[in-house]
Design a protein around this nucleic acid. Structure first.
Lengths: 215, 215
DNA sequence: TAAAAATAGTTGCATTTGCAACTGACATGA
DNA sequence: TCATGTCAGTTGCAAATGCAACTATTTTTA
C-alpha cells in the first residue's frame, strides 16, 4: 500500500501524516468493477492493478482512451471537457486506487508536512510520464491510414521490449478500440500485411518482418 | 523574461541563482524559424510566442502534433519515440524559448536553492496543463469520422470562449493537418454540414447551429 | 463437461475519405 | 502593378474503411 511511486523517499510515519493532510482515501475494486463518483477536483492514483478509461459514443462505438497501469493517474481533469458520450473507468484487474484532493496536493501545506515537496517532485514525475504516454497515443492516432496506425503501434511495443516478436496486450478486438478503427477492417489489414510478408501473426502474437528503420 | 509561469512566486534575485543552477539558457527566434539541436535531456519552455511541433512523414503528409503557446513546454521526451519521419519545431511568431536541463530541475539541488520546491510546484502545474491538452487532442483524434472530429474540435473551441460563434485559430489548410485528415475532404464535409444546417461558415469563421448537448 | 461467451477470422457491399487537379480570391513584395 | 504565393473552395474518381453478417476457435462458467 505504501509502495507507490508518489511516496518514494518518504518515510512511513510521514506518509500517514501526509495522507491525512490531503484527504487521501484508498479504495479497493474487483476485476470488472466500474469506478464511479469521481469528484471534479479529485485525482485517482493506481496503487495496484490496471484500469481503462473507456468512452462509449452515441453510435455505439467503444473507444479505449487510456490504459493506466500501476502508478498512473486519472481524474475528471484529464478527460472529456466535452460531454461526448459516456466515459467510464473500468478495472481490468483487481485494483487499489488512492484518491487525493488535487488542490491540497499542489498548494502550500499549512501543516508544514516536511516532505510535501518530495511528494510534489514525485507527482511531477508521474504526470510527466503520463504526458509522454499521451504524446505516444497522439503519435499513433495521427497516422493517416490503418496500416500506419498498426505499424506505429507495433513499433512502440517493439521498442519497449527490444524485440521484434511482440504480444499485443489487448485482445485484437480491444486493440481496434484502442486504435479507433473498425475491428474487421483492422483484421483485414493485418491479413494483407501477412500476405505481403510485412508481419507474421497468429492472434495476439505478432512478429515484425518489415524494416523498422523505414517507418 | 522573468514573467514566465515557471518562476511564479520566486523573487528576481533567486531566479538568477536558479537559472544558473540548472543551466537555463534563453534564446530568441524569429517568425518562421526552426528550432534545432534540442538535446535529449533538454526541455524547452515557451517564454513568449507560439511554436508548433510538426511531423512530415514519408508520404508527404504534414501533421501538426501540437501547438504550444506561452508557458507551454516541449522536448525530445515528448515526441516520437519512433523515428517516424521528420519532427520539426517551428516558430509561428517571434519567440523566446528557455532551455533547461530536465535532470537538474527534478533532482534535489545541492546548491540548496531555497525556492527550488516552488519551481517544481510550478513545473507540475505546467506539465499537468500539457497533459490536459494532450487528452483533449486524443479526444479529437479518437473520433471515428471526419464530421465528428470537426464537431469535437468546434465544441472545444466553443467551450473555451463560451460562444457558438468561433474563429478557428488555424488556416483551414492547417486545421486539416491538425485533425489529421485530407483538406479537400474536410472542406467537403464542412460544406455538407452547412447544407444540412448544422453550421454556418465562411473561411475560418464558424457558427455552431447544431445542438451541442447532442455531441 | 456441456453450454455460453468471448475472441479471431472472413467477405460482400456501401460509404467515407483521400488524391489530384482544377478555379477564384486575396495578400505580399519586387 | 505585375507576379508569386497562400488560402478557400470544388469535383471526379479511386482507394480505404466501416458495417453487417457470417464461421471457427478458444476460454469461461455453470
Amino acid at each position: 500500500m505504501l509502495d507507490t511511486r508518489i511516496f518514494d523517499n518518504i518515510t512511513d510515519g510521514e506518509i500517514d501524516k501526509m495522507k491525512n493532510c490531503f484527504k487521501a482515501v484508498n479504495r479497493k475494486y474487483i476485476e470488472g468493477e466500474t469506478i464511479n463518483n469521481i469528484e471534479n477536483g479529485s485525482l485517482g492514483i493506481v496503487v495496484s492493478g490496471v484500469v481503462e478509461i473507456i468512452r462509449f459514443d452515441f453510435d455505439g462505438n467503444r473507444t479505449i482512451l487510456e490504459r493506466i497501469n500501476e502508478n498512473g493517474i486519472f481524474g475528471r481533469l484529464f478527460f472529456s471537457q466535452i460531454d461526448e458520450g459516456d466515459v467510464e473507468i473500468i478495472c481490468l484487474t483487481d485494483c487499489e486506487i488512492m484518491f487525493i484532493d488535487y488542490d491540497h496536493l499542489t498548494k502550500q501545506c499549512h501543516n508544514a508536512c516536511s516532505h510535501h515537496s518530495t511528494l510534489i517532485r514525485n507527482m511531477l514525475s508521474i504526470v510527466s510520464e503520463k504526458s509522454i504516454k499521451l504524446s505516444n497515443r497522439v503519435e499513433i492516432l495521427s497516422q493517416r491510414t490503418l496500416r500506419k496506425k498498426l505499424i506505429t503501434y507495433f513499433n512502440m511495443i517493439s521498442k519497449e521490449t527490444g524485440k521484434k516478436n511482440i504480444v499485443v496486450p489487448f485482445s485484437l478486438s480491444n486493440l481496434s478500440d484502442y486504435l479507433c478503427v473498425d475491428r474487421s477492417a483492422m483484421l483485414r489489414e493485418m491479413k494483407k500485411m501477412r500476405e505481403e510478408g510485412l508481419i507474421d501473426s497468429h492472434a495476439k502474437k505478432v512478429t515484425i518482418l518489415y524494416d523498422q528503420t523505414m517507418f
